[in-house]
Simulated scan of single mutants.
Amino acid sequence: MTKHTLGSYPHMLGFEQLERLLERTAKSGNEGYPPFNIEQTSDHSYRITLAVAGFREEDLSITVEDRQLVIRGRQHDDSADRVFLHRGIAARQFQRSFVLADGVEVGEAAMENGLLHVDLTRARPETVVQTIRIKKG
């Protein structure tokens, strides 16, 4: 079976960066924790919602690194002075990554009822028509 790349399609010029983004996304290793939703809130805006019950705002960090939204969580384990008869809620850390398209900007982030909401907006693309002059040879 032959692996096709975007470069193997003659009409797809200059999409090498997109191909690298797709490969990076496939290798990001996002596991299933924490669960999340992505919803479209308007024609040009989105909201990512992560279920982060047990995390405080100071336990979470949100960064944009090389067109990639990275959300990290690290709970402080304060169980040293506590005795658990059953421990089903573990303090665990996570990292979730989302690759952002050109023009997508991260807006506000808010915590509400154990959910972290991160709002994204996409700039409306300008319609550009360019006429190329043909030189006489």
Rank of each mutant, 00 (worst) to 15 (best):
T25C: 00
G29D: 03
F98L: 13
N37F: 01
G73Y: 04
R24Q: 01
F15L: 15
R124I: 11
I38Y: 03
V106R: 11
G88T: 09
L116W: 00
H4Y: 12
G137E: 14
V99Y: 03
E57F: 06
V83P: 00
R24P: 00
A53V: 10
I38E: 04
L13H: 14
R67S: 13
Q17I: 05
F55R: 04
G103A: 11
F84I: 03
T131D: 13
Q93K: 12
T131V: 14
Y9W: 12
S8Y: 03
V104H: 05
T49F: 01
N30F: 06
Q130S: 13
I132S: 08
E57S: 14
E57P: 05
L13Q: 15
E31R: 12
M111I: 13
P125D: 09
S61V: 02
G7N: 14
N113K: 10
P10V: 11
L69V: 07
V128P: 02
A53M: 10
Q75R: 15
D59T: 07
D59Q: 08
A110N: 09
H4T: 10
G137I: 13
S79I: 01
V64I: 13
F36D: 01
L85F: 10
R74A: 12
E57K: 15
I38N: 04
V52K: 00
S45P: 01
E126F: 05
H44K: 03
Q40G: 09
K27C: 02
E126C: 07
R133G: 15
A90F: 06
E112C: 04
L60R: 05
K135T: 12
I48K: 00
T127Y: 08
I71F: 00
I48S: 00
D59C: 09
V52W: 00
E105S: 07
V118D: 00
R56E: 13
V106T: 14
Q68T: 07
K135I: 11
A123P: 01
L60S: 06
S61D: 04
T121K: 05
D81R: 06
E31W: 08
Q40N: 11
G29V: 03
K3Q: 14
S61H: 02
Q130R: 15
I38D: 03
T41G: 03
A26N: 01
F55C: 10
Y9I: 15
L6K: 11
V52H: 00
F98R: 09
E105K: 11
L100K: 04
S42D: 09
F36C: 04
Q95T: 15
R133C: 10
H4W: 07
M1G: 12
Q40T: 14
N30M: 10
H11A: 12
T2D: 11
G107T: 10
Y46S: 08
G29S: 06
G7A: 14
L21N: 07
T5I: 09
A90H: 09
M1Q: 08
F15Q: 12
A101Q: 10
V99S: 06
G54F: 02
S79N: 10
I62R: 01
R67G: 03
R67Q: 15
F84S: 11
A91R: 06
I134L: 14
K136H: 12
